[in-house]
Amino acid sequence: MKALGTRIAAVGVMLLGLLTWIYGGAQIGFYKTYYSVQRVDEITELEYQERVEAFLPGIETLVIAFAAFVVLLSASVILERRSENA
């Protein structure tokens, strides 16, 4: 039973990581702490970027989620073997 719970947690963590990454814009690069919005100065017609503070998860979110998935899955296998031996 514990093994099953750990496996569900492993899948949950992987899914959570994937959804967080997609929600943050599915960026191939590393995390970002802001994004930019393009603005135009009325008189000079120059384009400039206005910074908007926000945390945007990057590819490392997926890597961490996958690592947690592997650890939890391994733990579930160990738990299953222990319960079989008991």
Binding site: G29, F30, Y31, K32, T33, Y35, S36, L56, G58
Partner: peptide, 8 residues
């Protein structure tokens, strides 16, 4: 000079 990733 700034990019959105502080480590970078």
């Amino acid at each position: 000079m700034s990019v959105a990733n502080p480590k970078m």
